[in-house]
Design a protein around this nucleic acid. Structure first.
Lengths: 345, 345
DNA sequence: TCATCTAGTACTCGTCCGCGC
DNA sequence: AGCGCGGACGAGTACTAGATG
C-alpha cells in the first residue's frame, strides 16, 4: 500500500527554508538547544511537523562526531538478559545515551555481534554474560570502554550481583523458617556455580549446620536427579543453584511424594536463584534470589558513562546486593501445605 | 584501561593513501565490488588490516542513500519473539539486509520503538505481535513497507502460522493415540484464542467427536482452574490454548492424581501450543504445536524484501503450516506411564 | 577501438564554528 | 550580547570522465 506518496523524505534544509531560517538555526531549534529566539524556534517546530520531518540519526551521529551509543550484546533467549536489556534501554535514555542491541546468534557468535556494534561506532560496550576470553576482552577495552555484566574479569569494569550475599539470604530464609537439615544442589563447576556453593556452605556452617551438597548442573534434569538423595538424607530445606534446578527438584520431589508412602505433597522448601519467569509461574511460585535487573542495568550504564564522560580510568567492580523474593515454594517446618503443591495464597 | 591508544580511528582516506589509491577505489575494493584490479584490491585489503580499519556504518548508509536496514520491534521478554528475532537476524543477512532490533518497553511503548527505527531510516518495519491500532499501522505502511508477524490486519503484509492447521494437528495426534474424550482449554476471547478454539471444535467434530470446551485465558492459572472440570468429564486428551495453559493443567492434574484415589500419575494427555522453552523443560516434556520461528522469520524477511527490491505492491497474507513436536506429555490411551509424570525416555 | 581501471568530484544530511549584524 | 547565516566538516558512496593498455 505504499507507493503513492513516494516523494523524497524532507531534510533539515526543507524545514529551514519553510521556516525561513538557516539549517543551523533549525537544527538548534529542533534539539531545543539555546540560540534561536522563541519565535524562530516555534516557526521551525511548526515547519517540521507540517512536513513530517524526522532527523536522520545516522547523519546526526556523523555530524556530531559522537554517537552517544551504548552497544549491548546479549543472548536474547535468555530471559534474564531480556529483562536487563529492557532496563538498559531506560537507564541509557536517562543518561542521554541510546542503546544498540545485538543478539549473539549461533551463526555469528559474540565476536560478530561486537563487530557490528563497533562498526556502528558505539562508544562503549556492555556485554551481558559474555563468554569471550579475557584477552579478547582486554583488547576491546583498550579501544573502547567495556563493561561486563554478570561476569568477572581482571582489569575490566564489572557489574554483578553479590552471589555470596544472595546465597546467605536464601540460607537465612530457610533457617528462619525452622529448617535445619539443609542441602544445596549445585550448578556445576563454573565460577558462578562455585560461588553459590561456597557461599551456601559458609552461610550454613556459620549457623552451626552441617549441610548436604549434591553436585549438579544448571538444568531441570540435574535438580530432578538430586531429589532422591536430598529426600533420603532427610533434608527439608534446599537451596538450588538456579531456578531451573529448583524446578526439576520440586517436580521430582512432588512426584516422589505422590507415589510414596505419605500422600502429603512435597516435603521440601526450595529456594531458587535468578527470579526468572519460571519462578513466577502460577503453579510454581518459587521463592528465589533476584539479581534485580533494573539495578544492574542502571549500574552498568553508570559505569560506562563514568568512563565516557567522567574520564574515569581505573576499572571498577560494582557488586550489587540481591534480594529474596519469597513465594509459595518455601514454608515453615513442618511444611503446612495443601495437597496441591504450591501453598494456598 | 583504554586511554593509551586514543588516536583517531583510521578512515577510508587513510587506507586509500596507504594503499596508494583513491578513496573510491578503496571503497570498492573493501566491499568486494567489481572495478579495482586484483592487485590494488589486495593492496587495499592489506592496508586496511594493517591499520585496523573498519568502515563506519552510519557514514556508509548515509552515502549509499539506502540503509538496507530492516527494523524489528519485539517484546523482548517474550521467548517466542526472542527466537524470531534471532532467526530474523540470519534471514536478513542472507537477503543482504541488516536487522535493527528495538524492544517495546513499558516506558516508550510500540510507537516509541517504531520512531527510533524510522529515525534510523529502516527501509521496512517488521512488527512482532504488534498491538497498534490498524489505522496507525496503515499510516506507517503508507510510508514504508510494514510486515506484521503473528497478527492479522486488512491491507497489510502478514506472516503468520496457520492456527487451524496447528489445532488440527493436535487433535489428529490425540485421536491417533486413541483418545476420544477430548477437551480444549481456551485462551479467552482474542483473535488467536478464538481461532484455536474454533479450529479445535471443527477438527474434533469432523472426527465425529463431541468435545468439551472450557473457557480460560493464556495463563497457568487458567489451565489449573480447568483441570477439575476436565477430569470430572472423563476427558483423557486435552488441547490447551498454549503452553502456559497446558503447564497449569498438567500440574493440577498431577496433583489431583497424587491426592486422589488412583496413585497412577496423570491421566491426561496434553498438547500445548507455541513450543516455548516451557514445553522443552526437562520435567515437562510437553507435546506442543510449533510455529517454527525459523520459517516465520524467513518468510517475514522475504515479504519485506519483495516490497523493497521486487516492487510488489499488493499485500500478501503468508500462512505457514505449523508442526507438532511430540514429547512426553501425550501417550496412548490408556496412558502407560511411570508414576513420575513424564514418560520415561 | 574498446574494455579495464582509476581519479576526482558531487553528494548524503545534519552539526559545529566563525563571523557579521 | 543575542541571534542568525554561511560554509566547512564528518566518512563514506555514486557517478563521470579520463588514462592506460
Amino acid at each position: 500500500m505504499a507507493g503513492v506518496a513516494e516523494q523524497r523524505r524532507p531534510t533539515l534544509a526543507d524545514v529551514a527554508s519553510r521556516a525561513g531560517v538557516s539549517p543551523g538555526t533549525a537544527s538548534l531549534a529542533l534539539r531545543g538547544a539555546p540560540g534561536p529566539s522563541a519565535a524562530s524556534a516555534e516557526r521551525v517546530r511548526a515547519a517540521a511537523s507540517a512536513l513530517g520531518y524526522r532527523a536522520d540519526r545516522a547523519a546526526s551521529r556523523l555530524a556530531a562526531r559522537r554517537t552517544r551509543l551504548l552497544g549491548v550484546t546479549l543472548t536474547i533467549r535468555n530471559t534474564f538478559h531480556a529483562e536487563l536489556a529492557e532496563a538498559l534501554q531506560d537507564a541509557a535514555e536517562d543518561a542521554g545515551y541510546q542503546v544498540l542491541l545485538h543478539p549473539v546468534t549461533a551463526r555469528r557468535g559474540e565476536a560478530g555481534a561486537v563487530d557490528v556494534l563497533l562498526d556502528s561506532r558505539c562508544e562503549a560496550l556492555l556485554l551481558l554474560g559474555t563468554e569471550m576470553p579475557s584477552s579478547q576482552l582486554a583488547a576491546l577495552d583498550a579501544h573502547d570502554p567495556v563493561v561486563l555484566v554478570g561476569r568477572r574479569a581482571q582489569g575490566l569494569d564489572v557489574v554483578r550481583a553479590d552471589e555470596a550475599a544472595g546465597t546467605a539470604l536464601a540460607v537465612e530464609h530457610l533457617v528462619g523458617l525452622g529448617h535445619t537439615r539443609l542441602a544445596h544442589v549445585s550448578g556445576g563447576s563454573s565460577d558462578v556455580a562455585r560461588e553459590r556453593r561456597d557461599g551456601f556452605l559458609a552461610a550454613a556452617r556459620a549457623r552451626g549446620l552441617d549441610p548436604l551438597v549434591v553436585e549438579g548442573a544448571f538444568s531441570e534434569d540435574a535438580g530432578a536427579a538430586a531429589a532422591a538423595e536430598v529426600l533420603a538424607a532427610g533434608v527439608t530445606g534446599v537451596f538450588a543453584a538456579n531456578d531451573r534446578v529448583a524446578l526439576g527438584l520440586l517436580d521430582a520431589a512432588r512426584s516422589a511424594a505422590a507415589t510414596g508412602s505419605s500422600g502429603e505433597g512435597p516435603l521440601l522448601a526450595v529456594v531458587g536463584y535468578d527470579d526468572s519467569p519460571l519462578a513466577r509461574l502460577g503453579h510454581v511460585r518459587l521463592t528465589s534470589v533476584s539479581q534485580d535487573p533494573g539495578a544492574l542495568a542502571a549500574a552498568a550504564v553508570r559505569t560506562a558513562v563514568e568512563r565516557l564522560d567522567g574520564g574515569r580510568e581505573d576499572p571498577v567492580d560494582v557488586v550489587l546486593a540481591p534480594r529474596l523474593v519469597v513465594r509459595g515454594s518455601t514454608g515453615p517446618l513442618p511444611p503446612v501445605r495443601s495437597g496441591g503443591g504450591a501453598t494456598s495464597r
